[in-house]
């Protein structure tokens, strides 16, 4: 596999483009701080790298109701990457979209008004009162916010792309898988260009509750600091990208995901290493989510691909040999690895 990466767009708490995020990381900056936007004291001294620090009032904004903040972030990076790669010239049926979407929770906050209106004495909520009419206080577009696929549908509308449209949930290994599925779609010929994207969940009470019950094995500290953000990559077959004169930022050389058992990341790494003829015992260079932007979950792999390519651009190699890097994504007892290569 040698798939060209012809555009990348990034949003993290450290900045809105890959070069800036890389410079900030290299300078040791961190966007991690106390959780804002809601009272997180129930979770102890939890910190996060947030983009969305204020509760959103979505009453009159259908886009907020339909997509939620991370859906809109996904839409934004997809549009930016699409424009940067010049995909508007492609036949729309030939442009696919593979998305890893962080947890889209049904926001209980949105039910609060109706539920509070259904209280009957003390703390109890009367379902009879709720169904008898209090439920009408719930916004009619609320149900859409529960569907993980709506953001991908909206991107297809906004970009007028009609190819594969697949949404995977919802952690770091899904972020790896979305990029790999995109690459496979190119190999199979079901798409001529692919937007492969991922976005984290929002740092919310539900998100923190989930992390508080983290069943994953203990990992690096950055796994315990939630971050918000995501990225979109444009993937094309190398020969086609070169033929149309597209700027090539780097290459996707291979990748794999594995699940369960001991160290699925290592098994994925071994499998991915075999694809590029490298011994798994030889460290190639690994990119986790840097602590400064927190753990981005489903948005992590695409973000780290973009940031690593930016790092290579910022520090050109003296060697004629292209650098190779690994991007790791971890999930609920699963793991994945992407192998990317510098464009020289």
């Amino acid at each position: 596999m040698r798939v060209a990466i012809t555009a990348a767009a990034v949003r993290t708490a450290l900045g809105d483009d890959a070069d800036r995020v890389w410079r900030a990381i290299a300078a040791g900056e961190s966007a991690v701080g106390p959780v804002q936007g809601f009272d997180a004291s129930g979770f102890g001294d939890v910190q996060a790298a947030q983009i969305w620090t204020e509760p959103e009032t979505a009453e009159d904004d259908p886009a907020l109701r339909i997509l939620g903040p991370h859906g809109r972030l996904l839409d934004a990076v997809a549009m930016e990457a699409h424009a940067a790669a010049g995909l508007a010239s492609f036949t729309r049926e030939h442009v696919g979209l593979f998305v890893a979407m962080g947890m889209v929770d049904s926001p209980i906050d949105d039910l609060a008004a109706a539920a509070l209106a259904s209280r009957e004495g003390g703390d109890a909520m009367s379902m009879k009162t709720f169904f008898a009419g209090a439920y009408r206080q719930i916004h009619p577009l609320w149900p859409l916010s529960m569907l993980n696929n709506v953001a991908a549908g909206q991107i297809a509308i906004d970009l007028d792309i009609r190819g594969d449209n697949v949404v995977l949930a919802s952690d770091g290994d899904a972020g790896v898988r979305a990029i790999l599925e995109g690459a496979y779609a190119l190999e199979e010929g079901s798409a001529r260009a692919v937007l492969a994207a991922g976005v984290s969940g929002r740092v919310s009470p539900a998100h923190l509750a989930r992390l508080a019950l983290d069943v994953r094995l203990p990992g690096p500290a950055c796994f315990e600091t939630p971050g918000e953000g995501g990225a979109a990559l444009v993937l094309e077959r190398e020969d086609e990208a070169r033929a149309r004169g597209a700027p090539i930022l780097g290459f996707l050389r291979g990748g794999s995901t594995a699940f369960g058992g001991e160290a699925p990341e290592l098994r994925a790494a071994r499998s991915a290493g075999e694809q590029v003829g490298r011994s798994p015992d030889v460290p190639i260079g690994v990119q986790f989510s840097p602590p400064g932007i927190g753990y981005l979950g489903a948005g992590g792999p695409a973000t780290m691909v973009a940031v690593t390519l930016a790092e290579w651009r910022a520090h050109p190699s003296d060697s004629s040999e292209a650098r190779v890097g690994n991007i790791i994504g971890t999930g609920l007892d699963g793991g994945g690895m992407l192998i990317i290569e510098e464009a020289v």
């Binding site: 993980n148 995977l168 995901t257 699940f259 699963g334």
Partner: peptide, 25 residues
């Protein structure tokens, strides 16, 4: 969470390859 049921199913089956929770409604 949408990946939980597929993940636990994979555990029950001792399946260790890719796990794809597809969430396209």
């Amino acid at each position: 969470s949408p990946e939980t049921a597929p993940t636990l199913l994979a555990h029950l089956l001792d399946a260790r390859g890719p796990v794809l929770p597809v969430v396209s409604a």
